[in-house]
Amino acid sequence: MQLLCSVPDFLVKRQSMPVFDVRTPAEFANGHIPGAINLPLFSDQERHEIGLIYAQEGKKPAILKGLDFVGPKMRMLVDQVLAVTNSRVVGVYCWRGGMRSDAVAWLLGFYGFTAWRVEGGYKSIRRTLLAEMMQPRPVRIIGGRTGSGKTQVLHELQGLGEPVIDLEELAHHKGSAFGDIDEPPQPTQEQFDNLLGLSWLSHPQESRLWLEDESHFTGSIQINEHIWKVMRQAPVVYLDVPEELRADNLVDSYGRTDRENLKRSILKIREKLGGADTKLALDLLEKDRYHDLAILLLRRYYDPGYDYGLARRSPETIHRVVVTDRDFRKIALKLKDLTLS
C-alpha cells in the first residue's frame, strides 16, 4: 500500500520509519533528507539517457526506456530495502514526488510494505526547510575569544536540557584555519542547509536557542543569510577568559594532532601572521612548545580577528561573564540562569 502525506507530516514520520531517496547517486550526494538511504531507481547515466530521449522523442519513449532499466532491478530494489530494515512501514521520495517515487512506492506496496510518499518530493522538503529558517527564534549567542571553551559550554548547556544548535558540528569544521583538523569532509552547502533547517525546526519557536558565535563562513560552508543576521543582532554572552586558560584549552584540543596537519594550517595563515611570526610558529611547533605556540597564535592571529568582529556588534547586546577556571558545566549553569534583554 502506498500513501501520500504533506511535508510536515513526512518530516515527523521520518523519525520512526526508514526513508529511501530514490534519486540518482549524484542527486543524493548533493543533498538529501538527513538519515535517508539512497535507493536509486536509475543510475546517473541511465537518468541522463532517459532525459535525452525525453527531450528528443517525448515522454512516452522516455517512459519505455525507463521501464527497460527498471525491469531487471525490481527484485534487487526490494532486496535492498529488506537488507536494511525489518520495518514494514517506509518513506520514499524523489525530486518532485513524481514518477520515480511513485514507481518505487508501488513496487514496495505490492510486496507488502506501507510506503509513504511526500507531496512535492525533495523539492518541497527543501522549500519547507528554507522557509523554516526564516521563522523567528529567541537566539542567544555564546561568544568569547578563541580557546574560551565556547563549544564545551554549548554542549554542557545541551546536557542541562537547553535547546542548542552546534553549527560547527553540522559543518564538520571548527571555524578557523585549523578548523578542518580531525574532522570528516564538510557536507555540501545544500546538505548543510538541510541539517540546519531540520535543527531549526526541531526546537519550538518560543524556546531560547543557544548558538556559538561564528563567522559567516565555517570552512567552505556559508551560514544561512537570515540566521546569520539573527545571530549578529542577538544578545551575546561573552566569556571573558584569561589568555593562559585559553592557551590550555587549545593545547587540549590540538596537542595530540599530527604535526604535519598543524604545519599545514600555520602555512595557510602565513600572510596574516607575517614572515617572522610564521617562522617562529613553525619553530615552536618543531620543538613541541605547544603552549607557547598557542599564545603566539592567540595574540597574532585569533584575538585581533575576533575582536574586530565583536566591535561591530551593538555594545548593549554584549554581556560579559568572567571565567576563572575550566569548569565548563559551572559556566553553563551560570549562563542557563542569565536573564538577557
Score class of each variant (00 low, 15 high):
Val230Gln: 09
Val230His: 00
Gln233Pro: 06
Gln233Tyr: 09
Gln233Leu: 13
Ala234Met: 08
Ala234Arg: 11
Ala234Leu: 03
Pro235Tyr: 02
Pro235Met: 05
Pro235Thr: 01
Val236Cys: 03
Val236His: 05
Val237Ser: 05
Val237His: 03
Val237Leu: 08
Val237Glu: 05
Tyr238Phe: 15
Asp240Glu: 14
Asp240Val: 11
Val241Ser: 07
Pro242Leu: 04
Pro242Gly: 01
Glu243Thr: 12
Glu243Cys: 09
Glu244Leu: 11
Glu244Phe: 03
Glu244Ile: 10
Leu245Pro: 09
Leu245Asp: 13
Leu245Phe: 07
Leu245Val: 14
Arg246Ser: 06
Asp248Ile: 02
Asp248Tyr: 07
Asp248His: 14
Asn249Met: 06
Leu250Asp: 00
Asp252His: 14
Ser253Ile: 14
Arg256Ile: 10
Asp258Ile: 04
Asp258Phe: 01
Asn261Lys: 14
Asn261Tyr: 04
Lys263Asp: 01
Arg264Lys: 14
Ser265Arg: 01
Ile266Arg: 01
Ile266Phe: 01
Leu267Pro: 04
Leu267Glu: 11
Leu267Asp: 07
Lys268Thr: 12
Lys268Asn: 11
Arg270Trp: 05
Glu271Cys: 10
Lys272Phe: 03
Lys272Ser: 02
Leu273His: 05
Leu273Lys: 10
Leu273Val: 13
Gly274Asp: 08
Gly274Phe: 04
Gly275Glu: 15
Gly275Val: 13
Ala276Leu: 10
Asp277Cys: 09
Asp277Trp: 11
Thr278Asn: 01
Lys279Gly: 05
Lys279His: 10
Leu280His: 10
Leu280Trp: 04
Ala281Phe: 00
Asp283Ala: 10
Leu284Ala: 05
Leu284Thr: 06
Leu284Tyr: 09
Leu285Ile: 12
Glu286Val: 06
Glu286Ala: 15
Glu286Thr: 15
Glu286Met: 10
Glu286Ile: 07
Asp288Ala: 11
Asp288Leu: 04
Arg289Phe: 03
Arg289Tyr: 07
Tyr290Cys: 01
His291Asp: 01
His291Ile: 00
His291Trp: 09
His291Lys: 14
Asp292Gln: 15
Ala294Arg: 04
Ala294Thr: 08
Ile295Pro: 00
Leu296Ser: 02
Leu296Asp: 11
Leu297Val: 10
Leu297Met: 13
Leu297Gly: 04
Leu298Tyr: 01
Arg300Thr: 05
Arg300Phe: 03
Arg300Asp: 06
Tyr301Thr: 07
Tyr301Ile: 05
Tyr301Lys: 11
Tyr301Met: 11
